[in-house]
Amino acid sequence: MWRQVTSPRVLRAILPAASFVILLAAIFYVQPRAMSYFGMNLMLQYTVPIALATIAQMFIITVNDLDLSIGAFVGLTACIGATLLADSPLLGVLALLACVGAYAALGALIYWRNLPSIVVTLGMSFVWLGGAVLILPTPGGTAPGWVKAIMGLKTPVVPFPIIATLVIGISVHLVLMRSSYGTVLRGVGGNPRAVKRAGWSLLKAKMVMYAAAGFFGVLSGLSLIGLTSAADAHIADRYTLYAIAGVILGGGEFVGGRVSPIGAIIGALTLALTGSFLTFLRISPDWQIGAQGGILILVLALRALIKRQEG
């Protein structure tokens, strides 16, 4: 029994959850008042948009690419949500659909010309940011009422952010890990040639994954303005790094289609909690990103240790 628990495979699977639980326990120890409905709600409310952006990044990482523009993209959709969507819903929905379409087109372009995704998405981050500045030159706008209503839900017993992130994680898990086409999509990251020989279109797979990333990017932007109720072009700049770190913290591999949606959600939660933890410890915000980098390195070091056992 004990041997099963300490097998590298199991250790690897529980590592993300374990880091999260340890961090949460540390927070409760330092600040017992956080251990309440209100405290949890406050601490975790911003994890919903971060978790959605992390899932978006995960789709891209699944097909062995990397999106360095997701933060700017979330900023753009937030700006569209706080202006067009609120003023003329039809136009807003069309604009958001166009954003998802643009992502699918990017996937097609990257596949068609065999381009490095890092460079293309870095370039596109300028386009998204520019678009956001054009739509909303100065911070402002108002989120549509229904978005605010959803994000402000007061669920009984368990705070809304926990339920929301769980629902997101489980539904993505069902589609990507349990459905047959989800397996094909992950196969594109694992062995593209084999997937192609089996008769699946790689072009379609890339477009589907990029479109999915775009869709979750849109959701992230909308949920973000539901919390802030106003938008700004730079509102989500940090999300790019958060999202990559979240996927990796959650047990995702950089290449090979080895990802975990639920792990990614836990990774995003862990990163978000780091901020609260440092605040409770009265550590200067200067060190916040540094601590996040440190946690990332620590978890990766543990994983390297487990891997050494494995092989």
């Binding site: 460079v119 981050s125 300028f126 386009v127 520019g130 678009g131 500045v133």
Partner: peptide, 13 residues
Amino acid sequence: AGVRLVMTGLIIV
């Protein structure tokens, strides 16, 4: 500023 950013990005891509 907005147009400049969009154009820079598009031309690079």
